[in-house]
Amino acid sequence: MRASGNRFKAALASGRPIIGLWVACADPYLALVAGGAGFDWLVVDGEHGPNDVRSILGQLIALEASDAALVVRAPMGEPWLIKQLLDIGADTLLVPMVDDAEQAAALVRAVRYPPAGIRGVGAGVARASGFGRDAGYLARADDGVCLIVQAESRAALENLSEIAAVDGVDAVFIGPADLAADMGQPVASAAVQEAIAAGIATIRAAGKPAGIMTPDETLNRRYLDLGAQFVAVGADTLVYASALDALARRYGLGEPDAQPATY
Rank of each mutant, 00 (worst) to 15 (best):
P260S: 06
A11C: 10
E162V: 05
G46K: 00
V23G: 10
L160K: 03
G5C: 09
A90D: 04
A69V: 15
A198I: 05
V43T: 06
A101H: 00
R109N: 00
A13N: 12
S4N: 09
T92S: 10
D143F: 01
R54Y: 07
D182V: 14
A68H: 13
E255Y: 05
R16Q: 15
R154I: 14
P17V: 13
I163L: 07
I82W: 03
Y240C: 09
D99G: 07
I18F: 15
R112W: 01
T237P: 00
G199Y: 12
Y223A: 01
A116Q: 14
E47R: 00
D134S: 07
A197T: 08
Q59Y: 09
T214N: 04
V149Q: 05
L60M: 04
D178I: 06
R204D: 10
R54N: 07
M183R: 02
L93T: 04
A123I: 13
Q229C: 05
I174L: 13
P186K: 00
K83C: 09
F131P: 02
V233I: 15
A232M: 15
K208T: 03
A141M: 09
E194M: 03
A261W: 09
A164Y: 01
I19R: 11
L57C: 02
A180D: 04
E47T: 01
L238M: 14
F230Y: 15
S153G: 15
S153P: 12
R250N: 14
Q150W: 08
L94R: 01
E78G: 15
M183S: 10
G36T: 03
V231W: 07
N51V: 01
C146P: 03
